Simulated assay, not measured.
Amino acid sequence: MRIVFMGTPEFAVPSLEAVAAVHEVTLVITRPDAVRKRGKKLEPCAIKKRAYELGLPVLETSRMTPKALDAVREARPEIIVVAAYGCILPDELLAIPSIDCINVHASSLPRWRGAAPIQRAILAGDIRAGVSIMRVVHELDAGAYCAQADLVVGSSNTAELTQRLSVLGAQTLVEVLPALADGSAVWTEQDESCVTYAHKVTKAEMFLSPEFSAQHNAVLVQASSDTAPARLVLAHKGVRVLQASVVPAVDEIAIAAGEVVVEHGRVYLGCAQGLLELLVVRPDGKRDMSAQAWSAGLRGEGLTWAKQ
């Protein structure tokens, strides 16, 4: 089949690779280079880099302009595949492919429509997370789906779960494409009574707090991302928490909420309920380091911690 692929981040790469291995990708559309790291330099997105490695034609655009729509028409797609492109798609685009326009969405729809389904699944304590191959329609993530698959979240953090779901999404996508081509795909309309929305996660809601339980703080760390990191202030200095764990009740020591204890290179935070042990951190302006290495610089009694 002739396919136009639209995507931007690392999540979309396995889907592009899987499609390109068995179908003719006539055009890859992705968002323009952007500042993605601390270096303040423009960098290409993951899809642009991989598309060039695969020898595929690339169009960079932040929105579907008339010129971009003309480029899609010239590519004559039978199917348009979208995977985390990052732009609202106009109805004009949806009418171009001869078969359909579909999206690889990182949730088991109708749960978690919207921008941050993976983080919201973690924050909500979902046992399983999934992917849906859905028809792109005018309303956000409201189209019928023709395939779904899921997996156990477990202890996966946002980055790990994103990678696992990206692979699962690619597998599910290529498995259903033949059915789309011959018209045998079975579509299921979403149950509107079960819809939940995955609104963008803000930095403010990711601040750890001694007013929360250790379990809740640990979930915030698990759901942390570069755009909305789990953070706190300890000894008047900001720090990002990359890994942490709840201390089992049998190993708890007496620490009041808001207090910090450094013992044999281990850093414990007192929470409203239970203790949180920091494992890997990134102090402001410094590199990632183990809590043990970081603890060597923590001096004095009466250490406390608070929200950012």
Rank of each mutant, 00 (worst) to 15 (best):
L173Q: 04
G125M: 06
G86W: 06
P229V: 08
Q308C: 12
L161Y: 10
P117N: 12
V221S: 06
T61N: 10
C194H: 09
S295N: 13
D126V: 13
V82H: 06
A159S: 09
T196G: 03
A181M: 11
A159H: 11
G130R: 00
R111N: 00
Y145E: 00
D182Y: 15
K49W: 08
V239R: 05
G114E: 06
Q163M: 03
V250Q: 10
I99V: 10
G143I: 01
Q292E: 03
H199N: 04
H236R: 14
I122C: 11
I122H: 02
V247M: 09
T30K: 01
A68W: 13
E189R: 08
P229L: 07
M64N: 10
E53R: 02
S155V: 11
R31M: 12
W112M: 14
G302M: 09
V25P: 08
D150M: 15
I79F: 14
A95L: 11
A84K: 00
I253P: 04
C87W: 05
G270N: 01
A218H: 05
V219Y: 01
A179M: 04
A129N: 05
Q119E: 13
D284V: 11
C87N: 14
R282N: 15
P66Y: 14
A218N: 07
C194A: 14
A306L: 10
F207Y: 15
S224D: 13
R111G: 00
G114V: 03
A95R: 14
A291D: 05
A115S: 13
D141I: 01
M1K: 05
C45V: 09
K203G: 11
P248Q: 09
A223V: 06
T8A: 08
L220P: 02
D182H: 06
L94M: 12
V35T: 08
A106D: 02
L93R: 07
P66S: 14
Q243C: 15
W305P: 02
R120M: 08
H105C: 04
K200W: 14
Y145N: 00
V22S: 04
A116G: 05
A296P: 03
A181D: 08
L42W: 07
L27D: 07
H216W: 13
H236P: 15
A12Q: 01
P57F: 09
E252L: 07
A291T: 05
S295M: 06
G270E: 13
E92Y: 09
